[in-house]
Simulated assay, not measured.
Amino acid sequence: MANRITQLFDIQYPLIQAGMIWASGWKLASAVSNAGGLGLIGAGSMYPEILREHIQKCKKATDKPFGVNVPMLYPEIEKIMEIIIAEGVKIVFTSAGNPKIWTKHLQERGIKVVHVVSSVKFALKSQEAGVDAVVAEGFEAGGHNGRDETTTFTLIPMVKEQLDIPLIAAGGVATGRGMLAAMVLGADAVQVGSRFVASDEASSHMNFKQEVVKAREGDTMLTLKELAPVRLLKNKFFEDVQELYRSRPTKEDLINLLGRARAKKGMFEGDLEEGELEIGQIAGLIHDIKPAAKIVEEMINEFETAKKEVASYAW
């Protein structure tokens, strides 16, 4: 299944596991990489030395390529980048910031750089900054999201029309059929988050994993646009946010309600009432918790089956 992305990262399948906070530790990243995809460690929920530990354990658990996802709003970004370079990580996905800041610095040290965007405008800015590839993430995605509410299957062809470098689709992809659809629309690969939350190796709490499996259509919604748009499962905390909105809150009111470590409380500690539960709309298609390698295998098998079905259509 060779294409620009598999060649860029030296992987078997054009399938990338998203570097999600509180879910993407070394166990998940190494499992996906060993299965032929590209695993990513999510640095957004890790102190620098914790990230170093995860990188070192991942290197012991796999001899395949893996990467680190780094939200550039991270307060200790310089330490994070120093550790990534010192530990010999060869692939970095950046997000939530200006790609110009770190791209050249990392590439000069032999690191491939990919930037995550939610619009054509920022895809082009990333290309101008010299990144090796772009992840275009649609409105369906879990976690922090774009404000424009552009869906993945609208965004991908619009980005593809103007982009020259490899394009990775994210948001709403959890099956092989979804993977094929994204690639037909112009993506070179897909980045999958929510499906891997419901995996044995994800570091998220079992309570959260089970809520993902229970979720159905309409159980998530994008909110908190005034701070950083985030897609959440509807729970008590989500309803508290909606209740606050009815009083026309200030930004400070929203910050006070959010407090500190709300995502950790929900996704890592398993507090289903007061925690922030970030997941994508595609949760409605996730019905079980299974090993990451099995998820990769099933997605690729379904991709190949769907491809043959489409090829056999009599028009």
Rank of each mutant, 00 (worst) to 15 (best):
M20I: 05
M20H: 02
I21Q: 13
W22Q: 08
W26R: 09
L28C: 03
A31H: 01
V32T: 07
S33M: 06
G36A: 00
I41E: 00
G42T: 01
S45C: 13
M46L: 15
I50K: 15
E53W: 10
H54C: 01
Q56C: 07
D63Q: 14
P65R: 09
V70C: 13
L73A: 13
L73W: 11
Y74I: 13
E76M: 13
E78F: 12
I80F: 05
M81T: 11
I84E: 08
I85S: 01
I85F: 00
G88P: 08
V89Q: 01
V89T: 13
K90Y: 06
P99W: 03
P99L: 04
T103M: 05
K104C: 01
K104F: 04
K104W: 02
H105D: 10
L106R: 11
L106N: 05
G110L: 00
I111H: 04
H115K: 07
V116L: 14
S119W: 00
S119E: 02
S119I: 08
K121S: 08
F122A: 09
A123C: 06
Q127H: 08
G130L: 01
V131W: 02
D132N: 13
A133F: 05
A133C: 06
A136H: 03
G138F: 02
F139L: 01
F139A: 15
H144Q: 07
N145Q: 13
R147Y: 13
R147L: 13
D148N: 15
D148V: 09
E149H: 14
